[in-house]
Design a protein around this nucleic acid. Structure first.
Lengths: 345, 345
DNA sequence: TTGTATGCGTTATCAA
DNA sequence: TTGATAACGCATACAA
């Protein structure tokens, strides 16, 4: 009833009020002033519910990620928000907690038009499996159009490869980091990966393997430890690695959060970093440089990833064909003090 | 056109389909089956836009907080999400970045019905000032009803005191932590507060002052350093504190994030923790125990705060009168290794 | 440049 | 137990 009241007070029709709101240039100056006056007087604000309904869009974007607690994702989110605000979108967050997302949850979002688009910062979801009776290869069900999807950070699974993505080259980055350790003289290098359901850490593992092979170094199976991508997961993994013989002289962790857990567990075992064992991370979260010792790690431009992902999504929502190729953003090896030469031994 | 199609295929009226969706018990078994069949066949999902519009509610709740990057708030958010999911709400996040929120942003949310309720995890916003022409003391403008607001974590400013809140007793907690330092033998205790626009850290400062006074200890003005509640802010503050003479033998930081920055800056200055100087934090974020040395801090039940806040908001949205008293949740002093006796001098 | 009138997909009211 | 129909608030095609 609201636009009506304004119209009545302004002495114009609701169409004019609507026009004033959406294309003021099509309203005569004098009329404009009347309407403005009425709006001020009533404190009117357009009902977003009705507007969205009418327009058929929510101005909402869903972001699906493993964990907001991770400072890296917080950085990505910041980039996403910045663009979202500019473009007039609000962001809905769904945390997978490293679990696969329930299909029902996802289909809700998709089919009930609760969002104009989706950003996937985690790609482990099984909902993309084809032939589950809901999502065909074009997405969509019975001709309905799926909202646009853009993938950030995670390497794209085969069945998602036709979606655009924005990320660093995880494989090259991990290889580069591994080569740094090799250059320092390490021969026995351990790797702590995330759960192998995460394609992201698998890419990093590939890079690690590649650099090792390239250098003619062995990759013993028992130098690779898998765990949840948390502090606790890393602790368990370190515990495992330290029990191996011979044990690694350096540990490459698939992200900084795990590196923090690893460092702690190593200290508890009485080892000095980097004198006794080197630690290398990935992400360059803001805590990396204030650790003791400051962490050597691979920096990802988190905010930039977020911004570009969101920008691309916006274009897709706008109807542009944004293609399916991944956009690779630059990484950077940040050498600090958690890596050094291996012990003489 | 969607519910119509389903109705046609099922050979019933749209009203029946709607009933099937919202109160199936009022639909005859046989009809129910027909409708179900049609829904399955069409892959129909109710249009949330239309539904929200009709119902006059969004099922959206806005959470306003300083920074999602902070692991403490991530914990609170997790609690909020848990309840939100149970109750069928989605969460919209607005980050203030420690700045005051623009009034326009807020009024948008409030007056355009973009959310059913609001959770305030930061109370520095000036929008609550009365007499700004928009928000009266009952909230609301010209008889419009403000959506319910619940405050989490932050101490309530006078003008917000009629809103309910969920938080620890910051003052007692800080006093207790300070007493721990005093008990260890410290006499010169510094305090790193956040920006004083944040009432939260002001409460903690009060607690610190109270415990000092109680013990007959002086609180020199130059032992209190103010800074943004970030790692960088804490570094600057430490820099300042170390330049004082005599300088504190212990530093109480208003949160763990700042404690991390403080520890790093102290190490850079060549000081050992806790042998040369003790550090105390607040929040007990998950990194606190893996720092070197592990951080002594005041634990807040972050998820619980989030859950209770959201639960309370849900009741308010449901129309219950939830009163205006704050709900105080328990804190706990966690003594680790960053605090010890002061140096012999 | 403005007004009239229609419809968006649901839910809710009322009769049948 | 079901069906017809009136809103909900806004945007827009079309007429004036």
């Amino acid at each position: 009833m609201s636009i009506k009241q304004v119209a009545k007070i302004a002495g114009v029709s609701i169409a004019t009020v609507s026009r004033y709101l959406n294309s003021p240039e099509h309203v005569r100056e004098k009329t404009r002033r009347k309407v403005q006056e009425a709006i001020l007087q009533t404190g009117y604000a357009p009902n977003a519910l009705a507007r969205n309904f009418r327009r058929g869009r929510t101005s909402l974007v869903v972001v699906i990620l493993p964990s907001v607690g991770d400072p890296f994702f917080a950085g990505v989110m910041r980039g996403i928000w910045r663009v979202a605000r500019e473009e007039g979108y609000s962001i809905l967050i769904r945390e997978t907690q490293f679990n696969t997302l329930e299909f029902d949850e996802y289909s809700d979002i998709v089919f009930s038009k609760q969002a104009d688009g989706i950003i996937l910062l985690a790609s482990t979801s099984p909902f993309m499996k084809e032939g589950n009776g809901k999502l065909g290869k074009n997405g969509g069900h019975k001709g309905e159009k799926l909202p646009p999807i853009v993938i950030g950070c995670e390497t794209v699974a085969p069945q998602l490869s036709h979606y655009p993505s924005v990320r660093v080259d995880n494989e090259s980055a991990a290889a580069e980091a591994t080569r740094h350790l090799i250059r320092l003289g390490h021969r026995r290098i351990g790797f702590i990966s995330g759960l192998h359901t995460s394609l992201l850490t698998r890419g990093r593992e590939q890079g690690y393997r590649q650099a090792m092979t390239e250098a003619g170094l062995e990759v013993a199976d028992n130098w690779i430890a898998e765990g949840r991508q948390t502090i606790e997961g890393a602790r368990g993994a370190v515990h495992y690695l330290l029990a191996q013989s011979p044990r690694p002289t350096a540990i490459f962790c698939a992200n900084d959060e795990m590196a923090m857990g690893a460092m702690h567990e190593l200290r508890r075992a009485g080892l000095r970093i980097p004198e006794d064992i080197s630690v290398l991370g990935f992400d360059d979260i803001r805590y990396a440089e204030v650790l003791d010792p400051p962490l050597t790690t691979v920096a990802q431009p988190a905010e930039e990833i977020g911004e570009h992902t969101m920008q691309r999504l916006c274009r897709a929502i706008g109807g542009d064909d944004i293609g399916g190729e991944p956009e690779i953003v630059p990484h950077r090896l940040v050498i600090r003090e958690s890596t050094g030469a291996p012990p003489a031994d």
